[in-house]
């Protein structure tokens, strides 16, 4: 967006987003007290991600800005996700597949005994 053409975000909108962020922070605290098993981490990430999106779109004004700037942000996030996903594909699965039983060619998906 060219200088002097900044979109003025209404106070009401800022207040609503502020309220939402407070609510989501409260949700983070409350859900952290409850053991939801496998859902714990995805839920925490979903809440944190929602807060980040709200901040980026409204407080950082990316919703109203040139879409190229949004693309730059999204690219950064995508590459962080790619890095983490492919690294975790190694660290979390190391030694769990491709192991053959001694004397056979049968592949197992069980963790190797030494792990």
């Amino acid at each position: 967006m060219a200088q002097g053409q900044h979109h003025i975000i209404p106070i009401r909108m800022l207040a609503i987003v502020f309220g939402l962020l407070l609510f989501l922070t409260l949700a983070t605290v409350i859900t952290a007290q409850i053991d939801l098993g496998l859902v714990n981490v995805p839920l925490a990430l979903a809440i944190a991600g929602s807060k980040a999106i709200l901040v980026a779109l409204v407080f950082m004004a990316l919703k109203y800005d040139n879409k190229v700037n949004l693309l730059v942000l999204v690219l950064g996030v995508v590459f962080a996700v790619v890095f983490l996903a492919l690294t975790l594909a190694d660290t979390e699965l190391r030694g769990t597949i491709g192991i053959t039983e001694p004397g056979t060619t049968e592949l197992t998906v069980e963790p190797a005994e030494s792990e």
């Binding site: 590459f79 790619v82 492919l86 594909a89 190694d90 660290t91 979390e92 699965l93 190391r94 030694g95 769990t96 597949i97 491709g98």
Partner: peptide, 22 residues
């Protein structure tokens, strides 16, 4: 170019799944 870095680590003890993907 961002998706292939693991091919430097085929014999470093990287998981077989990662090696196949890379």
């Amino acid at each position: 170019g961002f998706l292939v870095w693991g091919h430097h680590m085929f014999v470093a003890g990287q998981s077989a799944l990662s090696s196949i993907i890379f």
